[in-house]
Design a protein around this nucleic acid. Structure first.
Lengths: 326, 326
DNA sequence: CTGAAAGCGCTTACAG
DNA sequence: CTGAAAGCGCTTACAG
C-alpha cells in the first residue's frame, strides 16, 4: 500500500503539499498539482481514513440503532438513512439492539470508541438514561421524542391512533379491539392515547378487556387472535397498532372462519410494502418510512457539519389509507 | 476525553504498561494492574479505535454489500451477519448498491480506505471484475459463487428450481410459467436451469413464451401477471423464482378472478416471513436466510483472524415447503 | 515485570 | 505557493 510519503517522494514535493492537493485546502500550483495527481493515479494511492480520523476526529461514519432490521418498518427507514448518508459521503454502521438495554449500551460504547460522527435511533424505548452524560455527538431520534434538545422525526402517533379508531367507530359504531406492541415504546403508547381520545370523543367508555398487548410480528398478531377466540370472546373490529400485527390477525381471523371485512374490519399502522398486496389488502395509517430516514439523516449530517445548529423536531401528519380490510 | 497518557500519568506508570493491561498482552503485576484499572474507571477512559487501527491495521469492522436491504431476503441474512459479527466484537457497515456497478465500486473503495477487515457480498451480479486486483481482504459471497478461491455460502439453486418445477409438473402435468428476476444474477440463472432440467426430466419441450423476467418485488410480480392476462394468455401454474414476485402474482391472479390454488398453483422461492401468513399461504422453497448470514459471518471472521485458512464453499439443500397455494 | 522510544499515516499551524 | 515538523492516540519491539 502506497502512503502519502511515497507519493510525495515520487512527485518530488513535501507530504504536506500532497495533503493539500488531496483535500484541496490550499492553492497549489497547477503543474505541481497535476504531477501529484498523476503519481496518485500511478500508484493507485488511496488515503487511509483511520490516519485522517486520528487527526481530524471525524470518521464520516454514523451509527443506526434499532431493535431489529427485520421489522419492516425499520428496514425502509434504514434504507432512507443510508441513501442520504451515502450522498454526503458517510457510511452507516448497523446495530440491532433487540430493545435490550445492555446491548444498547455496549453498541453505544463501541460506536463512541470508533468515533462515529453521529447516531440515529429508531424505535427505542422511552427511558434514555443512556444518552445522558455522553459527549456532544449529534443524535437524531426517529419515532420517539426524548426531549426538546434532541432532534426527532416523527409522525403524530396520537393523531394516527385517533384517526384509525375514529374511522372504525364511525363505520361500525361498535367496540374496537386494540392490538398493540409494548406500551413502553412511545409510539405504541401514543397510538393508544389516540385510541382513547377517539373513544372519548364518541362518548364510549374505555374497556380494558379490549386492549391486548402482543409481540410486534406476524406471529404476535396471529397468536393473540387465536387466544382471544379460544377464550370465547368475539371481536367486532380491530385497530392493530402495527401492520405486521394486523396481518397476522387477519390470517387468524380467516382461519377461524371470520370474514374480513364483512364480519370484522381491520385497520393497521405503518403501511408496509405487503399491505397493499395482501388479500384482503389492508387499511392502514401510512408512515413515510423512507422519507423519515432521509430526513433524519439530513438533520444529523447538518448537525455534524455545523455543531451550532439547534435541535429540530419534525412532526408529520398521519394519513389513513383505505383498502379492502374495512 | 482522557487518553492513555492521562491514565499512565495518574497511575504513575508508562503508557506501554497501560496498553498491556488494556490488551492483556503481557503479565502485569496485579497491584499495578488494579491501580491502572481503577484510574481507567475513574476517568471513564475508553481507547480510541482509530488510533489503535492505525497501528494494527485492524478495525473490527466488516462491510455488507447488497442490492437493497428492503428486499426481504437480504434483511434476514443481514440480521444473521450482524448478530455473529457482534458476538465476535465486529461492527457492520451496510452498503446498498442497487446492483449498480458504479455504486458498488465506490462503496468498495470507501470500505477499503476505511480498512475494513472483510466484506460479505449478497445477491450481486455474476461478473466480479471488481474484486480482482484488490488486496487480500477476506471476502465471502452469499448466494453466488465467483470462483473456487472465494468463500461462498449458498443454496443449491439448480436443485431448488428443479424441485419446485418438478412438484408442479407432477401435480398438474401441465405447463409451468416461470417468473424470474434478472438472469444475470446467478441465483436466478440457476433456478431457471433447474426449471429446464425438470422439464427435460419429464420430457417436456421448453417453451420460451412461458418465461417472463420481471422486477424482484411485489409490484414486479403483480405487473407481469396483468401484462400476461392483458395479452390474452392464460396460465396453468407458476413457479416464481422469488416470493415477492410470487405474492404479487397471486394478488394479480385473484383480482383477475383466478382462484389460487384451484385454477392456478403457485410456488415461490425464499420463504420470506409473510409467506406463511399470506392468504393463501405460499408453497415455496425455503432458504435458511438467517442461518446463511450467520454462516457467512463465521467464515469471514475465521479468515480475518487466520489468514492462512483456505476458502470454503457451503452448499445447502433447498427444501420445499408445501402450503395452500398449491 | 516495567519503561523509553519509534512509528502507524495522515493534517495543520507555522515559517519562508 | 511549498516545506519541515509537530502531533493525533495508540501498539510494540527492545532494553533493562
Amino acid at each position: 500500500m502506497a502512503t502519502i510519503r511515497d507519493i510525495a517522494k515520487k512527485a518530488n514535493v513535501a507530504v504536506s503539499t500532497v495533503s493539500y492537493v488531496l483535500n484541496n485546502r490550499k492553492k497549489v500550483k497547477p503543474e505541481t498539482k497535476e504531477r501529484i495527481m498523476q503519481v496518485i493515479e500511478e500508484l493507485n494511492y488511496q488515503p487511509r481514513s483511520v490516519a485522517r480520523s486520528l487527526k481530524t476526529k471525524k470518521t464520516l461514519t454514523i451509527g443506526i440503532m434499532l431493535p431489529d432490521i427485520c421489522n419492516l418498518f425499520f428496514t425502509e427507514t434504514t434504507r432512507g438513512i443510508e441513501d442520504v448518508a451515502n450522498k454526503y459521503g458517510y457510511n452507516v454502521i448497523l446495530c440491532n439492539t433487540d430493545k435490550d438495554s445492555k446491548k444498547e449500551k455496549e453498541y453505544l460504547n463501541t460506536l463512541y470508541s470508533k468515533d462515529i460522527d453521529g447516531i440515529i435511533f429508531i424505535g427505542t424505548c422511552r427511558n434514555h438514561h443512556i444518552i445522558k452524560n455522553k459527549q456532544d455527538t449529534p443524535i437524531v431520534f426517529i419515532n420517539s421524542k426524548v426531549g426538546d434538545n434532541i432532534c426527532s422525526v416523527l409522525v403524530d402517533d396520537i393523531k394516527g391512533g385517533y384517526t384509525a379508531t375514529k374511522y372504525l367507530l364511525e363505520r361500525r359504531k361498535s367496540e374496537v379491539t386494540l392490538l398493540t406492541g409494548p406500551l413502553s415504546r412511545s409510539s405504541f403508547f401514543e397510538r393508544m392515547t389516540g385510541y382513547l381520545n377517539a373513544l372519548k370523543s364518541e362518548g364510549i367508555e374505555y374497556n380494558e378487556l379490549l386492549v391486548h398487548q402482543c409481540d410486534v410480528s406476524f406471529q404476535g398478531g396471529y397468536d393473540i387472535i387465536r387466544t382471544i377466540y379460544d377464550e370465547g370472546s368475539g371481536i367486532k373490529s380491530i385497530f392493530a397498532a402495527s401492520d405486521v400485527i394486523a396481518l397476522g390477525a387477519v390470517r387468524a381471523l380467516i382461519e377461524k372462519g371470520v370474514r374480513v371485512p364483512e364480519d370484522v374490519s381491520v385497520v393497521g399502522y405503518d403501511d408496509i410494502s405487503i399491505a397493499g398486496m395482501f388479500i384482503p389488502s389492508l387499511t392502514t395509517i401510512h408512515q413515510p418510512k423512507y422519507w423519515m430516514g432521509e430526513k433524519a439523516a439530513e438533520l444529523l449530517i447538518k448537525r455534524i457539519e455545523d455543531r451550532s445548529l439547534k435541535s429540530e423536531h419534525i412532526v408529520l401528519e398521519p394519513k389513513l389509507i383505505v383498502r379492502e380490510s374495512t
